[in-house]
Design a protein around this nucleic acid. Sequence first.
DNA 1: GCGTCCAGGTCTACC
DNA 2: GGTAGACCTGGACGC
Length: 305
Amino acid sequence: VNSSLTRRITLHTPGNFNFWRTVYSHGWCALPPFRHNADSHQLERLLSLEDTTLVHCTLADNGTSVSVVARSASPLTRDHRQELIRQLRTCLRLEEDFTPFHREATKHEEFRWVARTKGGRLLASPSVFEDLVKMMCTTNCTWGLTTLMVTNLVRHFGKKFDNTLYAFPSPDAIAGATERYLRTHIKSGYRSPHLLELAERVAGGKLDPESWRTSSLPTQELFEQVQSVKGIGPYAAGNLLKLIGRYDYLGLDSWVRSKYCELHARRRPVKDSAIEKHYKRFGQWRGLFFWLEMTRDWHQDKFKI
DNA sequence: GCGTCCAGGTCTACC
DNA sequence: GGTAGACCTGGACGC
């Protein structure tokens, strides 16, 4: 969109929010339609609003707030702006209260740095559907293949904004494909029937992942419900739940297992049950303490952790 | 060059 | 409830 319109918007943030700790909390910032620029310290995101209006947002840390430059092909209405703000606040986890978590962190000497550096917010997608699809694309493969699958999904099924930017596809768009098409063009391999079934169930209204955000179900029941999606097992369900504010599961995979062994067992292999036992004392927050500990060195230089 | 292994796992079929 | 075996793909590795 060459003749796009730009508009500046401010996101107000609480005192315990840290922009870069959130952006680099895990790999999502590198998966389209997110994009990050480490040099200019900006996070980009192409949003698709309810009426299919596309808005490209460039986010930057402003100290006590986040500044957003929004580009769109047509002028944004008040409703557009409100929805845009809502979606971005969901991504940055601004609606979630981290006060109790930080209070808990200060109770544990080895985790005081978490509260000090305002850690805990994990970058999320605007929709639970998108997070589910992406989580499925991280299973049993390298990060490189995850990036390839997501990039392909966006390019083949997402609405085009300009030559490099495509929105995340709607469930309908993916549901309209065939398994063969997914295997050939998305390179999602044996995950293809699972992706298709998920998209069809959501498009057909038989599954409403968005409702999980506000569900009153105990986390254990929600965990089972998330795993009822074919292709989503304990790893993917545990991590999906972390993106909607439930931290009771560790979401173990080969990377965190090896990281845990490096940090706690002199690189000797450790049973999953031993890892579970280690974090049991952190109760409902165990999954978050676990993840922050495993990724602590990612942020060490920037924040003097 | 070619075969093998495995990566930010999960499902099914059996016990 | 616990555990083999199969499963797309692409990159790394050994020979």
